[in-house]
Design a binder for these strands. Structure first.
Lengths: 250, 250
DNA sequence: CAGTGGTCTAGACCACTCT
DNA sequence: GAGTGGTCTAGACCACTGT
């Protein structure tokens, strides 16, 4: 019988906070520390009730907030899981990405280069690297039916992602994040994207097949792990006229 | 003692749906029909418990979902209210709108023209107007500290907004939606915005003080009332280099 | 102070998934 | 059939707002 580690006093949480919020913090800790990982269900509601000595409604409310935030995923009859983030929600999905049959699809990835280089100051800051750290730099083009959609520049800490240097660049597939997980054990949990408008430089315009100095959408992304460490820095260039973004205001 | 109108059978809702979802639908109906309006609290949880003959937890869950969707607003000790939509969440807030003191602020509105005209086919469709209906067309520039931020074109059904034609255009103030409510009794509840990139035409470039053919962000907005009727069509042009949009992917 | 929403409990029963 | 999350109930007590 495991010791019930009552949530009421522990955990560093402000004990004036409602129980369900302290529970929520505790759950986030379990995820950040890697005790709960995507793929295996987290403990059942009944177990948590015993473990933390709270009512099941309180456990449910704590889980509710995390489900709401897209961090957990309930599956009736199966269990509750840590969600893999849905990068289909990226700003990049607002580019016209349909194939000849009219289906939305994942663009093909064509990696132009993959090499080690010293981190520039900007990259070192964004990835929180030590002085004189090295990074892996990828350049790639993403296409649908051969039509270029994005030109992308990506930087990764060489220390964490060294395994990529031993992999032929044509073997990485169309999606990088599964490769990060499989080859380097690095799980991407969150990302922050910033959209702005720029002007195509020589390389980008050549890659996208547009005249130089045409407007392009620029998407800057910083992707982080479950513990908040920045793992990937990415800049994507897309043709501005292919872009259309829609929101609802309630 | 009013008749308890049990939610269990009525309301056109599919009776296989959970109670709280049928309650939610019922609440949305109260809002759409104007029985619940912003400014006065909706009935208390205890009242609804009696009215619909359900447990208070079920009422709370129904309200929870509407609060989550930004439709209701709970205020402890005061009551629960129908929310006025926050148009501070518009895409337009992603333009650099700070004054000389560095504070975010509401741009000044300078109405260039306000006149009645026959609806074009595009406007008629967007506002769901009858054939040969007339519309009110506004053109305005929005500025901060005198610096132009947007050029806007706005169309409204003349039938609903006739009172605007009797108002001097300088008396409308910086925000139109309060004027719609005060002068025309038209409450904006939702809006849908679409962002794309275009090229400034002669008028827009003159209004924004930029060269012709410079890239501009184009925000198309359709704003609707609580019952879903489209009320306003709006197109805003802003300087692309002032634009920066940020999202989080969880 | 009365009345509101906010938190928490304790349990019943249902619907779904897997074996 | 055993075990999971989903729905619903009934009530206690707390925290905040207005008078």
């Amino acid at each position: 019988m495991p010791q019930a580690r009552s949530i009421r006093g522990i955990n560093g949480s402000d004990s004036r906070l409602p129980l369900y919020q302290r529970l929520r913090d505790e759950f986030l800790l379990q995820i950040a520390e890697g005790h709960w990982v995507p793929g295996t269900p987290i403990p059942t509601e009944a177990e948590m009730t015993r473990e933390y000595e709270v009512a099941i409604g309180t456990v449910r409310k704590a889980i509710d907030t995390l489900v709401q935030d897209g961090i957990l995923d309930r599956q009736q009859g199966r269990g509750t899981f840590v969600r893999r983030p849905e990068f289909t929600r990226s700003l990049s999905r607002f580019f016209r990405q349909v194939d000849q049959q009219g289906n939305t699809c994942i663009p093909e990835s064509d990696i132009l280069s993959l090499e080690s280089e010293p981190a520039s100051q900007h990259v070192r800051q964004a990835l929180a690297l030590k002085a004189r750290a090295r990074v892996i730099h990828l350049e790639r083009v993403r296409r649908i039916d051969g039509k270029p959609l994005f030109h992308e520049r990506i930087w990764l800490s060489e220390e964490r992602f060294a395994a990529l240097l031993d992999t032929p660049k044509d073997a990485l597939g169309d999606l990088l994040y599964p490769a990060y997980e499989a080859l380097c054990g690095q799980l991407i949990a969150h990302a922050q994207e910033t959209l702005s408008v720029g002007i195509a430089d020589a390389l980008t315009s050549a890659m996208l097949g547009i005249p130089v100095e045409t407007p392009v959408m620029v998407i800057d992304r910083i992707a982080t792990g479950f513990d908040g460490t920045p793992l990937e820095l990415r800049r994507s260039y897309g043709i501005a006229s292919d872009f259309r973004y829609q929101i609802d205001i309630a």
